[in-house]
Simulated scan of single mutants.
Amino acid sequence: MKRIRPRRIITTLCLSALLFLSALVSQSYAAGKGPLKIETKEGVIQFNVEYAITQEKKAKGLMFRNSLGPREGMLFVYQSPTTVTMWMKNTPISLDMFFINRRGVIRYIEEKTQPNSTRHIDSRGKVSAVLELRGGSAEDFGIKVGDRVILAK
């Protein structure tokens, strides 16, 4: 029986996290938007998302949008894991917010946010990305905490 080495596991996890984030950043600069998949227990769902990498793009987010398609969204990417606070000010549509850790795993979901609200929505810990989809998407597609976000090619 082969002995499992904790240091090797940690190194592998850290490398996976770096690859996840570097893929996010390189694709986002190239196109500004692109495909993203969420791997659920029921299967894989594909979305087309805009990337919010710059501070300016993160600050504007999906503000002033009157509609969002059922498979459209925005992915906010952070250079290093951080605690994130979002709000719905000037956003007239309800959203589901998926807070994603450095391994691409959804760690918290805020469902069906109230449009135009100034209530702060906290990530409940450090995350590397936040995905915003149309309100009700978590329920409609069966997306749950623990599901994995994958950048499609």
Rank of each mutant, 00 (worst) to 15 (best):
A31P: 03
R3K: 14
R65N: 02
Y51G: 06
E56Y: 12
R107P: 00
L24N: 15
S117M: 07
Q46M: 07
A152T: 10
S94W: 04
G73S: 04
R103S: 15
S67I: 03
G135Q: 01
K57Q: 13
K57P: 03
I53L: 14
H120M: 12
M86C: 05
E50F: 06
Q55T: 10
L21K: 15
T91K: 00
S26L: 13
S123P: 01
V130W: 02
V25P: 00
S16D: 09
L36N: 04
S117P: 04
E139W: 00
I93W: 01
A23F: 06
N90C: 08
G34Y: 04
T12C: 06
M1A: 11
A31T: 13
F20V: 12
D140L: 08
L36V: 14
C14Q: 14
E50V: 03
N48M: 11
I93H: 01
N101K: 08
G146N: 05
E139V: 03
L19H: 12
Q114W: 11
I53C: 06
I4D: 09
K60N: 11
F99L: 05
R71K: 14
S137H: 02
V25G: 01
L62A: 02
R103K: 13
L133W: 00
S128G: 08
V25N: 06
R134N: 07
V105T: 11
S28Q: 07
F20C: 06
R8E: 12
Q27R: 14
V105H: 04
S128K: 10
R65K: 14
G43W: 06
A31G: 07
A30L: 10
A59D: 06
K126E: 13
P35S: 11
I143F: 04
R71I: 11
I100L: 05
S94M: 08
V145Y: 04
Y29G: 09
K57D: 12
I150A: 09
G104P: 00
S28N: 11
M1E: 13
I4V: 14
F20I: 06
K57T: 10
L18H: 11
P35W: 08
S28F: 05
L36Q: 04
L68W: 01
L75I: 07
R71W: 04
R3A: 12
K41R: 15
Q79H: 15
E56S: 12
V105E: 14
D140P: 00
V25W: 08
P92H: 04
T85A: 13
G136F: 02
N90R: 11
S26R: 09
Y108R: 15
R103Q: 13
L62T: 00
A59V: 07
I100G: 03
A138I: 00
E132L: 02
N101M: 06
D147L: 04
S123V: 06
T40W: 05
G136H: 01
M88V: 05
K112D: 15
T118Q: 13
A23Q: 12
G125E: 08
T113Q: 04
R3D: 10
G61A: 06
R71Y: 09
F76Y: 13
S137F: 00
I109G: 02
N48V: 09
E50T: 08
G146D: 05
